[in-house]
Design a protein around this nucleic acid. Sequence first.
DNA 1: CTAGCATGATCAC
DNA 2: TGATCCTGCTAGC
Length: 317
Amino acid sequence: MPEGHSVHRLARQFDDVFGGQVLCVSSPQGRFAPGARLIDGHRLVSSHAHGKQLFLGFENELVLRVHLGLYGAWSFGGDEEFSGASSIGAPRKVGESEQGPDTGEGPYAGPPEPVGQVRARLVSAHGWADVRGPSACEVLTIEQAALIRTKLGPDPLTAAAGEFEQSKGRGTPAGHQSAARAARKEFVSRLAARRTPVGIALMDQSLLAGVGNIYRAETLFRTRLDPFKPSSKISSRKAGVLWDDIVAIMADGVRDGKIITTHPEHRGEGPVWPENAYYTYQRQGRTCRLCTGQISMAEAAGRKLYWCPDCQRPARD
DNA sequence: CTAGCATGATCAC
DNA sequence: TGATCCTGCTAGC
């Protein structure tokens, strides 16, 4: 599934293309038909990402919550009013990123016939959005949506989202800075309270929201942390460094629309994307970009974990 | 053609 | 820990 950076781009995309507009909402597949009826014909008034979840607020005080899970993806299309990336979701092959816009042939004549299992379709005067394969797609009250968000940890992209809010004339710089500081502090404090390995902790959305398998592997390498080190044994200084690194690489992800974590001086021959994008993710058995050792891979809590045993030594910190 | 896999998460035992 | 949700691409018959 897309990690947090993709969902933040999605939130921005919805705001840009559908914000303030009345939407026709349907469920071509049928499974979302009851929910679609609740918001069909209502105006989209807010679009927000928290971790990997997207919250679309409608004028009738209902909220559409979408979590793409492992397979979900959104696709967009429409007339020239539609700009930017038009397919955001689960990659189908290694290194896949967002697809170009579907502008169709000739004048825009409405959305195409649904392809595959389209759970929900949103349509405005200028374009459409389809979501397929989400693990969650439901309509909630504002209170229900807020309750779900209280169960999520701080989102490293809160600060980056703040820049976006400012560009839209909302919020204040000081407010965002203090919110970003609070998020950092909360992460450091929550991490110290856990005995689970840091490599497991980073995947827990109640600790911090938005990090997935790629960002986990990459930030642990960049900060030279042993994935198996108990979270509570990491110093608060180091935990802060870890948070700052996550913020940096995820903000880059929002900017670029893909995950690139390598520094230029550590890249080999060939294009940056995708073969030079990562330090450890899916590089098991290959030579580390920084030392002469090999990248390792192990299954941990049902997910594949990648790391360099030499660069991320247990005794390093 | 089919089995296997994927940047998730929840539920049951 | 393992099954399950659920979609589509890919490697391998």
